[in-house]
Simulated assay, not measured.
Amino acid sequence: MRLVVDLDLCQGHAVCQDEAPDLFQVPKTGQVQILRPDPGTDLDAARAAVRYCPTQALSLVDDSAVE
């Protein structure tokens, strides 16, 4: 799993940082920065950040999925 952000949608609300401060940082004037693309043991926090993002700018991608 890895975190992905759509910077065209991100408005810097920082909900992700509140939900998963070890994974996201949002400067006072700017957009989200992913600190660790692989959430590892913080997967539940990553899922909460994705779920509660007000602009739906975040997603989790499963790289192990076979197409």
Rank of each mutant, 00 (worst) to 15 (best):
C16V: 05
L23S: 03
P37F: 02
D63L: 14
D63A: 08
R2C: 03
A57T: 05
V4I: 13
C16I: 05
A20Y: 02
L58A: 11
G12F: 13
V61D: 04
C53A: 10
V32N: 01
M1L: 12
V5W: 04
A14P: 05
P27G: 10
V50F: 02
V4A: 13
Y52M: 07
K28C: 01
G12Q: 12
Q25N: 12
C53W: 06
V4S: 12
V5K: 07
R36M: 06
K28A: 14
V4Y: 09
L3N: 03
A20H: 07
R2Y: 11
E67Y: 13
P37L: 02
G12N: 12
T29Y: 09
A46F: 01
A48S: 15
L35A: 11
P21W: 08
L58C: 12
V5H: 04
V4G: 00
L23I: 04
K28I: 08
T41F: 05
Q31V: 00
D8T: 14
L7Q: 14
A45Y: 02
Q25C: 09
L60D: 08
R51A: 12
A48Y: 00
I34E: 00
M1V: 13
V4H: 09
H13R: 06
S59H: 07
P21M: 08
D8A: 15
A45N: 08
